[in-house]
């Protein structure tokens, strides 16, 4: 790791102030990706501003079907929230399968979303749940937030403070893990609202990151059942090919994971 300077913020305001004084500052949430990247010398921030001790960024509130999750809430806390489980068990289940127990104790929902790893789980949930990404300066619809591989709509120095969404009537997430890294080789989050609106978001497979699959969505809007997926064609041309899986195989996994997610929702 290259030299860096560490700062600990106790409020969002302080964090923004700290980073504005840095040459090339970066916010540090759970650090489960950032520290690993810095260890490999692939990132070299001059300053790190630790968000883990900002009380206002933690916690889960459920109001009717409205959900708000503080950005510094760990995967473990999302996975084990009884209130959240009652309205949207799919996101608890998703969080309980991120990384491993130790990663879940440190990693945060805000950190994961801000990083937008193309194989991360949360971005699929955000898109399918039509979530709002709340920052220190504005609110961004998930649809506008994820802009490419490791790219988001966040401005420099902007902090995600929370995410908010309306719990859907039905939802589920299914992923097929990469046998080595255990990240999603393909993960599909499905959500259906009472008005019949269906969203299907895919992570781990797209060569441009997380995306919604319109074909699946319209098929499932017409017939919310695993069988409806059978005749949907998945175009492999925009999917990733790597050491572990070809685009064609990922296209197959999108269908299979969608089917299974619908069955589980």
């Amino acid at each position: 790791m290259y030299e860096t300077n560490y700062h600990r913020a106790s409020s969002v305001q302080e964090a923004v102030k700290l980073i504005s004084g840095a040459a090339e500052g970066k916010y540090l949430a759970g650090g489960m990706t950032l520290i690993a990247t810095m260890k490999q010398r692939l990132a070299a921030p001059s300053d790190l501003v630790d968000l883990r001790h900002i009380a206002e960024m933690k916690g889960i509130t459920v109001n009717g079907r409205s959900v708000r999750i503080g950005a510094a809430t760990t995967h473990h806390d999302v996975a084990s929230s009884v209130e959240l489980e009652a309205v949207c068990p799919a996101i608890c289940a998703l969080a309980s399968h991120i990384g491993d127990p130790h990663v879940r104790h440190m990693g945060t929902i805000g950190g994961s979303i801000a990083n937008n790893d193309p194989a991360a789980d949360y971005p699929a949930a955000m898109l399918a749940l039509d979530a709002t990404i709340v920052t220190n300066s504005r609110e961004i619809a998930a649809a506008d937030f994820f802009t490419g591989l490791f790219e988001t709509a966040l401005n420099d120095d902007e902090i995600i403070t929370a995410i908010a969404f309306e719990a859907p009537a039905k939802a589920a997430y299914r992923k097929f893990p990469n046998p080595a890294s255990r990240y999603a080789m393909t993960g599909v989050f499905v959500a259906r609202r009472d008005n019949g609106d269906v969203r299907v978001a895919v992570t781990g497979a797209g060569s441009n990151g997380v995306f919604r699959h319109q074909g699946m969505e319209s098929a499932l809007a017409g017939n919310w059942s695993p069988d409806a997926v059978g005749n949907v064609s998945v175009d492999a041309s925009d999917l990733m090919t790597d050491l572990h899986a070809s685009a064609a195989y990922r296209a197959n996994l999108i269908k299979v994971m969608t089917k299974r997610a619908v069955a589980a929702a």
């Binding site: 560490y6 600990r8 540090l28 650090g31 489960m32 520290i35 690993a36 260890k39 790190l48 630790d50 883990r52 473990h76 127990p101 130790h102 990663v103 104790h105 440190m106």
Partner: peptide, 18 residues
């Protein structure tokens, strides 16, 4: 793996200052 404030964490992915 160690325990930090009662939870298991990976001490290779945390700065000492954190």
């Amino acid at each position: 793996v160690i325990h930090m404030d009662g939870l298991s964490v990976k001490s290779c992915s945390i700065l000492a200052v954190q």
